[in-house]
Design a protein around this nucleic acid. Structure first.
Length: 376
RNA sequence: GGGAAGUUCGUAUAGUGGUCAAUUACGGGAGACUGUAAAUCUCUUGCUUCGGCUUCGGUGGUUCGAAUCCAUCACUUCCCA
């Protein structure tokens, strides 16, 4: 994996670049649709590539490991072949599940013991075996095993957790260096900055992560309930330390405004379930604001789903029709809304790249973020 | 023509003397959702100037008190002719 910066904004910390993987180039800043179990929920791979123009998607180590299991993925020849996706894939390590499945896991210095949410069976994740699993999956970018701390989180817990995350990282990096890709394409390994909302812990973590010398770096443990201003402050603190010449990935973020603000602070990569999950729940994002299609006010609105939208669904369906589908519980509603939202997110990062390149990003960002977050 | 059962807040239901503006489901309205245990979850759903007001087919009655008991009328469903 290579990263090349193409433009640097003079008035913010935003930049554009290109991440080159063996599964294609990824222009940055980029949004990566989440496809946890090897499927971006409700969206075909063809729609993902042709209509949404996603360049890279996520898979999840924990979920794929439990089902279908690594023997199937290995026999399939890796996740790309298994799911029929020849563009880039990034795998989350299961660190988020350490957070979200808190009642079903136990953290030890060795690793983390999980109880499967599917059948209750017990499993151990270590920094080493997670690298092995990600090698088997064959993702272009593999994430290190970390603990995504909850919010609020005491300073004591955050300190202890960070120490474990760092120790896990050192072992993960070593195992990454000692292991080889299985399918002939190269794989990168990204460490993750933690430290909750504590500035000194974040600084310490950013330094530790930067020193690993990996091809890219991630910021995790944010957008877990803390006020957004706190999140933005942590990004600033961390990005002051993370190397400029490596891509920076803000994990699990976020809203259109979060993405704009993240880019302004030097973030290059984002992922979030919001466009797909909220889409399934009847909400769409547009350049003019968000729309809750369940609302009665749209029942006889026969205008295009999103007149400014870049996706085909925006122009062949009306708000009234998609609302009808949502209210009726039709699966097509989830598909249309997911396609629309993902296309909107990808168009958003495309516009951000254009504006960084032509120097209009700083003037545009505040008004755009505000406009996109208003409720229609 | 004879007999039986029934009529409750949009619909279907629970409630068989006071703890009932009244159960539950659906339907309606709104909110949440940020490295996906989510096509999920939460709230709300008689009116109200928030003190109350008017409700359980209609009317009349019994009772301190009725959605609940009695009478009667209306309507509905089923069975027998």
């Amino acid at each position: 994996m290579k990263f090349k910066i193409t433009h640097t904004d003079t008035r913010t910390n935003a930049r554009t670049g290109v991440i080159s993987t063996d599964h294609g180039d990824v222009p940055t800043p980029i949004f990566m649709p989440v496809g946890t179990v090897g499927s971006v929920k409700g969206v075909h791979q063809r729609e993902l590539s042709d209509d949404i123009n996603a360049k890279i998607i996520l898979g999840n180590t924990y979920h794929l490991y439990l089902r279908p299991g690594m023997d199937i993925i290995r026999k399939a020849g890796g996740l790309h072949k298994f799911i029929g996706w020849d563009r880039a894939i990034l795998t989350d390590s299961g660190g988020f599940q350490v957070f979200s499945l808190a009642e079903n896991r136990k953290i030890t210095p060795q690793g983390v013991t999980f109880r499967s949410h599917i059948d209750g069976s017990k499993h151990l994740f270590t920094p080493e075996n997670v690298v092995d699993i990600e090698r088997t999956i064959g993702s272009d970018i593999m994430m290190a095993l970390d603990e995504c701390t909850p919010y609020p989180c005491t300073y004591e817990y955050a300190t202890k957790s960070l120490d474990i995350t760092h120790k896990w990282l050192a072992r993960g990096v070593q195992h990454f260096k000692e292991s080889e890709p299985l399918y002939g394409h190269s794989q990168a390994y990204f460490p993750i900055v933690q430290g909750s909302v504590y500035k000194d812990l974040r600084e310490k973590s950013a330094e530790f992560i930067a020193n690993q010398g990996m091809d890219g770096n991630a910021i995790g443990g944010l957008s877990v309930g803390e006020p957004v201003e706190m999140m933005y402050e942590m990004i600033e603190v961390v990005n002051n330390i993370l190397p400029l010449d490596k891509p920076r990935y803000l994990m699990g973020v976020g809203t259109p405004a979060n993405i704009i603000e993240g880019v302004a602070r030097g973030i290059d990569m984002f992922d979030c379930v919001m466009p797909t999950r909220n889409g399934r729940n009847g909400m769409i994002f547009t350049s003019q604001g968000t729309i809750n299609l369940k609302n009665e006010k749209w029942k006889d609105d026969f205008t295009e789903l999103d007149p400014n939208g870049t996706s085909f669904v925006d122009h062949c369906y009306t708000k009234a029709y998609v609302r009808h589908l949502v209210v009726s519980g039709e699966r097509l509603a989830a598909q249309i809304a997911s396609i629309h939202n993902l296309a909107f997110y990808l168009a958003l990062v495309a516009e951000i790249r254009t504006r960084i390149a032509d120097g209009t990003f700083a003037d545009w960002k505040d008004e755009a973020a505000k406009r996109m977050m208003q409720r229609l």
